[in-house]
Write a protein that binds this DNA or RNA. Structure first.
Length: 288
DNA sequence: ATCGCGACCTGGTTGC
DNA sequence: TGCAACCAGGTCGCGA
């Protein structure tokens, strides 16, 4: 599952291998990944042909490639969803099993294709009109915690005004972007906080510390993700070595807590799972 | 305004 | 062995 660190690895790969290239033609193999382009797949393909990629940018889990002009141009926007990949492949290489969109390139990436591959198709591509600097479609998304302009005090203020549980707050992209289920659980474990603790019952210092752990987890993942990244292959599969070795909470139901050896618990949360240590991360008392 | 939940989607795994 | 149910989860839209 790509979260911010994985998406940043992809962004860096695109910056290196696709910026400077011109899109010569586009083939949409499945309509769903371009559903956010309201004018349809044919228009999506037509409007991208001949455009030049001039940058590779990211906010949270969204990526965009400014076209023609890095300040005022349009942008090709991408979200990887749960299972999306952006690959730069030789044009003649065999199609991936879940290849959805192919964009032929010339110039800086002569003879190669940018490919959007996505099994579950929660992700997608779209064209953002005038979105080079920041696509208006994602202007509501908050900055992410490794953005130098992320405002810690503002996050803490807003979190402390909310009655929602702190895990839900971490997943609220309008408050803080780029955090998904895995890194939310990891950050909370490191902070010894139960995810259902209401934001408005936490001390400012606890939330500042939580932010520190969010950054720590992301930076560690980034350091490891960056090393598995090969020159001509812009890849993310969410299963880089990081997930196997460094997780303390996610997916560890029944395993001993790495701090206190209490068996880790799993509970249902928002149609998914939360993993935590019932000793280190005690549940909040029920208020009445 | 704020909050929380269901829908979307596929394929690997589990259970009968 | 075959089939159905379950599970993974980011985002959006809707209803309370």
């Amino acid at each position: 599952m790509p979260e911010l660190p994985e998406v940043e690895v992809v962004r860096a790969g695109l910056e290196r291998h696709v910026v400077g290239a011109t899109i010569t033609s586009v083939e949409v193999l499945h309509p769903r990944p371009v559903r956010r382009h309201l004018a349809g797949a044919a228009d999506f393909a037509a409007v991208l042909a001949g455009r030049r990629v001039v940058a590779a940018r990211r906010r949270g889990k969204y990526l965009w490639l400014p076209l023609d002009d890095p300040e005022t141009g349009d942008a090709l926007m991408a979200h990887l969803g749960m299972s999306g990949q952006l690959l730069v492949q030789p044009a003649e290489s065999v199609a991936e099993r879940h290849l959805r969109v192919r964009l032929a390139l010339e110039g800086a990436a002569e003879g190669r294709e940018l490919r959007f591959v996505d099994q579950r198709m929660f992700g997608g591509l779209s064209l953002s009109t005038g979105g080079a600097a920041l696509p208006p479609e994602i202007a509501h998304i908050a900055r992410d915690p490794i953005d130098p302009l992320f405002d810690d005090d503002e996050f803490v203020r807003r979190a402390r005004r909310s009655s929602s549980g702190v895990k839900r707050l971490l997943l609220t992209q309008t408050l803080i972007s780029g955090v998904g289920n895995i890194y939310a659980d990891e950050s909370l474990w490191r902070s010894r906080l139960h995810g259902e603790r209401p934001g408005n019952r936490l001390a400012a210092a606890q939330l500042h510390e939580l932010l520190g752990h969010v950054r720590e987890v992301m930076n560690e993942a980034l350091a490891q993700g960056g090393t598995s990244f090969d020159a001509l292959y812009v890849n993310v599969n969410g299963e880089s070595g990081y997930f196997d070795r460094s997780l303390h909470a996610y997916g560890r139901e029944g395993d001993p807590c790495d701090r206190c050896a209490t068996p880790m618990r799993r509970v249902a949360f928002m149609n998914r799972s939360s993993y935590f240590c019932p000793t280190c991360q005690p549940a909040p008392r029920v208020r009445r």
